[in-house]
């Protein structure tokens, strides 16, 4: 494993930006800033006419590092340790589970908890626990 420094200040600040984004999306479109819900609805079946807006949001997510690099001249470290087969399994599970459970870290963890939703609290506790158990098994049982 790669050690990472504890960054309370920038993490709090970055978190606040994520919150600002969620508030702005609610203000603009009246919808929850749940990345899995937005991304999943880029694929058929289409339930509404919000495709272009969702695509624009996802494009913004992808463009963010390009803007950061343009402005600051560099990007922070990004270490993806998982091998390709693990990435494929992890991606399938993450995508499937997020849709099956009606949300992910942003939809349930940020927006749902902010709305004091009991469903989102149950979801957040469950995926946190599942994540902790998975990392424990991966790192300390092998």
């Amino acid at each position: 494993m790669i050690a990472t420094p504890f960054t309370p200040t920038t993490s709090l600040l970055g978190g606040a930006l994520i919150g600002l984004s969620a508030v702005l999306l609610m203000w603009a479109t009246g919808r929850i800033a749940g990345v899995s819900g937005i991304a999943a609805r880029l694929f058929p079946p289409y339930e509404d006419r919000q495709f272009a807006g969702r695509l624009a949001f996802v494009a913004g997510l992808i463009a963010a590092p390009l803007l950061v690099r343009l402005v600051t001249g560099s990007l922070p470290a990004q270490t993806i340790a998982a091998a390709t087969p693990v990435l494929i399994v992890a991606g399938l599970l993450t995508g499937f589970g997020a849709v099956w459970g009606s949300g992910c870290t942003s939809g349930h963890g940020v927006c749902g908890l902010s709305r004091l939703s009991v469903r989102s609290l149950v979801a957040t506790i469950t995926f946190m626990a599942a994540g902790v158990v998975t990392v424990f098994v991966m790192r300390h049982w092998s």
Partner: peptide
């Protein structure tokens, strides 16, 4: 399921 993928 999501949490397992996240942790992987």
């Amino acid at each position: 399921i999501f949490g397992v993928g996240w942790g992987l």
